[in-house]
Design a protein around this nucleic acid. Sequence first.
DNA 1: CAAATCAATCGTAATATTGCAATAAGTCAA
DNA 2: TTGACTTATTGCAATATTACGATTGATTTG
Lengths: 109, 109
Amino acid sequence: MGLTKAEIFTDEQNRMATMLKALAHPARIAILQQIISANACICGELVEELGLAQATISQHLKELKNAGIIQGTIEGVTVCYCIEPKVWERLKSDLAVFFASYNEPKSCC
Amino acid sequence: MGLTKAEIFTDEQNRMATMLKALAHPARIAILQQIISANACICGELVEELGLAQATISQHLKELKNAGIIQGTIEGVTVCYCIEPKVWERLKSDLAVFFASYNEPKSCC
DNA sequence: CAAATCAATCGTAATATTGCAATAAGTCAA
DNA sequence: TTGACTTATTGCAATATTACGATTGATTTG
């Protein structure tokens, strides 16, 4: 169907999956790495750095923005993107909790 | 197109995106939580726990297995799934590094 | 061996995603 | 106001994903 049955899962599971999906593309990973390494923000330099069309980059930025991971501020002609600290920290800690919930193999198949 | 241009990204970015994509579905999050909380392993109990058809669960398990996150062992008639410790730990640490690469807002838009 | 049981696979339908060209929309500078 | 420039949006085309019924394959039990 291509349609997730969101109603049978918990809010936590849905939220987590949504955030992970926003990250689950190499272009979006690359965009985030660029934004982070440029310390402050970036705009259409992303189009030059990555080898994708402007429309494509804009679309990926939109998805990251929809997930709340980044924030975009219009600065004259350009748009400045940066990490949304609270969402970033929350996701970071949610993932840490999730991954910590598995504690080594005691006995297994 | 629906086809990612994997060749323009680094191996690291592609690998990370692939792993995240494997996690990026509420059913797969739920499956992993079940496997973890059942301490050892599980099999078709997942079909009962989650409200999805057997074929659907099997498909999700296959994706997790393809990503290397879980491992399945045939035990008679049933199949026992469990976390693959090494892959789990590696992903855990890769994500920790990724999320730690952003250190609070110094000055931003 | 036959029946029962469990899981994987196949086939199909209904979306979703990715990527881009073309175009629109916004802002600055002259 | 008119260009020039930057980003967003629209409209495709080409896959990919999600879900399930039906079937197949493997294994145990009667």
